[in-house]
Design a protein around this nucleic acid. Structure first.
Lengths: 208, 208
DNA sequence: CTATAATAGGAAGCTGAGTTCCGCTTCCGC
DNA sequence: GCGGAAGCGGAACTCAGCTTCCTATTATAG
């Protein structure tokens, strides 16, 4: 019990010597490397690859994240923070439908480019739950949705929790190489519209 | 090239001695065991579990399927055959929308109960492609969809290939324990309706 | 500048699956 | 029945990843 202290954001006991500068620098590198490896290879990106790309040894990765899962969770939290920003930006817009649609599209787009995120969404509900909770994202989504419902452009029986679930549904299509994400985003959006709303123009089907 | 002959449905060379009866019996047991193990544990059900449940040794499993992937593919083909039956049944109905909706709902239901199937759909497009091809399912889906479009109850810009893709999207939500599949099926169905159609009544949100 | 605790690095160990191998057993044709 | 090919079982092997551990290095307080 010698207070080995997680070298992260837990408030640092002022008695303790601060984290060494090289440690802090390497932590950043590891996170960046993990982000890009996992965006490409998904959850089964390898620790050694990550270490290599970060320019450090595996041992160093483990000094900062005692487990692969911990690293995954850190990244997930990070991505959710990004989503939160996007939700705020969307909320700043005036038109209730536009802002809702924008948020959905942009979040979907992020998943398109980050395989790890989409895998966490579809196969690690616990992680996703914790990450979403820590950021206040569900609340923002509620506001986006509520405003659109109030304005009569989104069906009244939609529930805030449907949004992440639908995102996670869309994630499934992104992984399929010959699928055009925008078609499915469009269809889902139209399924959420208040009845009688004008439908999305779907992108044309690419012939194969 | 000594014609080691896959002991499956490939037309058996009459010169060859027929497959031994116990082999045939065991093959059946393996398939059944694999089906139930994988329905429960998904694609990472273990070969030993499957063998144990089939009451045979792993060696026997490998005699019939030289690779885990081969086994998975056999099962996938099997499930797709079931889907084809369902498509035929749906097609036998008169009402174009009803039959379309029924097919979507029933197929979705099957995935709900078979984790392996839903995993193949979302993460093994190649397998899914081959399986779907071998069975003539895409064609049946085209007919179901076309008929509904002709009748003006499904949006004209939907494409047959959207159907499997949307199924695969829905698969993503089924894996999330506290999600009600029927809500998302409903939303997707409404996204496919011709504009102005009467919306699905979504099941109420379960509070958590 | 020195002492020393914090950190880095990366080879080696561990683990958990899939797969192979081979001696034993069972079915089938004669 | 008998011979032998076909099939069976399951211990052992393989291999790929994660994790540990121990030595060498480096930043920082004094």
């Amino acid at each position: 019990m010698s207070a080995a202290a997680t070298p992260s954001q837990t408030a640092v006991d002022p008695h303790e010597r601060a984290q060494r500068s090289d440690a802090r620098r390497n932590r950043g590198r590891v996170i960046a490397a993990a982000r890009s490896c996992m965006a490409r290879d998904g959850l089964d990106a390898q620790m050694e690859d990550i270490a290599r790309r970060a320019g450090v040894g595996v041992g160093t990765v483990y000094r900062h994240f005692s487990t692969k899962d911990e690293l995954v969770e850190a990244l997930a939290a990070d991505r959710f923070q990004r989503l939160e920003e996007l939700a705020r930006e969307a909320l700043a817009q005036d038109d209730p439908w536009e802002s809702f649609e924008q948020f959905i599209r942009v979040s979907a787009h992020i998943q398109t480019e980050d395989r790890a995120l989409s895998e966490v969404l579809t196969s690690r509900p616990e992680i996703m739950g914790r990450a979403a909770q820590s950021v206040g994202i569900l609340d923002l989504v509620s506001r986006l949705l509520g405003r659109a419902q109030m304005a009569g452009v989104v069906r009244k029986d939609a529930h805030p929790r449907d949004v992440p679930m639908l995102m996670c549904a869309l994630a499934g299509t992104f992984r399929n190489p010959n699928s055009d994400p925008d078609r499915y985003i469009g269809i889902v959006l139209d399924g959420l519209r208040a009845q009688g709303g004008k439908y999305t123009k779907l992108p044309p089907v690419a012939d194969s």
